[in-house]
Design a protein around this nucleic acid. Structure first.
Lengths: 137, 137
DNA sequence: ATATCTGCAAATGGTTTGCGGAGGA
DNA sequence: TCCTCCGCAAACCATTTGCAGATAT
């Protein structure tokens, strides 16, 4: 573990990208975006910085299943909704408030959480009803 | 996708193992256990059956981060607690009730959820206080 | 000055899959 | 019988890592 962290161009760009999207992108997507600013950047660097930024509490990796990890520029505890049809991940207000305070749960000390709802999203529900309208026409 | 599922010895053993543990084991662990009953079983078969059983709604794969997937013999929606120190996963009652009914969340149709709390578990908290006791002695 | 960071490319490791034979229904 | 399932081993693919040079502080 290094003692002092350097704010390299790569790290700044990666953080910027995550801060400026409401999606919950994969490392690969971040890499593609970053190349627009730093054509020489490598995927390994993206992964290294994603982990570094997560360790610093700047971003968060989501546990939502699927082949590749998703990252969230908002590191505050909040709930997500993942569409089982298109794999989009949405932020939701969620029913929980942690208030930054660890709390006791059955003897365990809870310091954070990930709440993921699964189902079919607005987007895909609309598509479904469009299809139905067409077939009824 | 096959039309009729066969209840093979392998599938029965794998399901049995998951039903009879309160842990949330990895595929590898299930494989090791299964070998005690079926020495010839292969890891590929374990994975195939875990997916099959999940598709049938018999078991559930957990999204809790970490290198390898965890499986849960209880497929009903419920919350988990994962220790950040020892990686154990505990069942918890959790604050949510879905009642088997999909509900609307900001326009999305929610059919299931995964809620994972993170923190330090009873077990590790005890270890900590034991250490402290020793150093104070 | 110097220790951290980067690009590159190879290694890793959990998971998946093609194949030919086995075995449930 | 026959079609699904198995064991085996190779393939896959997201992620990690060793190295030598670059760079932030």
């Amino acid at each position: 573990m290094p003692k002092v962290r350097r704010m390299t161009r790569q790290r700044r760009v990666i953080l910027e990208i995550l801060r400026n999207t409401k999606d919950h992108p994969t490392a690969e997507w971040v890499y593609e975006q970053a190349k627009a600013h730093l054509p020489e950047i490598s995927l390994g660097t993206v992964y290294r910085n994603l982990h570094l930024l997560e360790a610093e509490g700047e971003i968060r990796e989501l546990d939502c299943g699927g082949a590749s990890g998703r990252y969230d520029g908002n590191s505050l505890d909040h709930a997500h909704f993942k569409c089982l049809e298109c794999d989009r991940i949405y932020d939701t207000a969620g029913p929980l408030e942690l208030n930054g305070q660890p709390f006791d749960l059955e003897g365990h000390m809870v310091s954070s959480y990930q709440l993921v709802f699964y189902g079919v999203c607005r987007h895909c529900l609309n598509k479904r009803s469009e299809k139905q309208d067409n077939s009824q026409r």
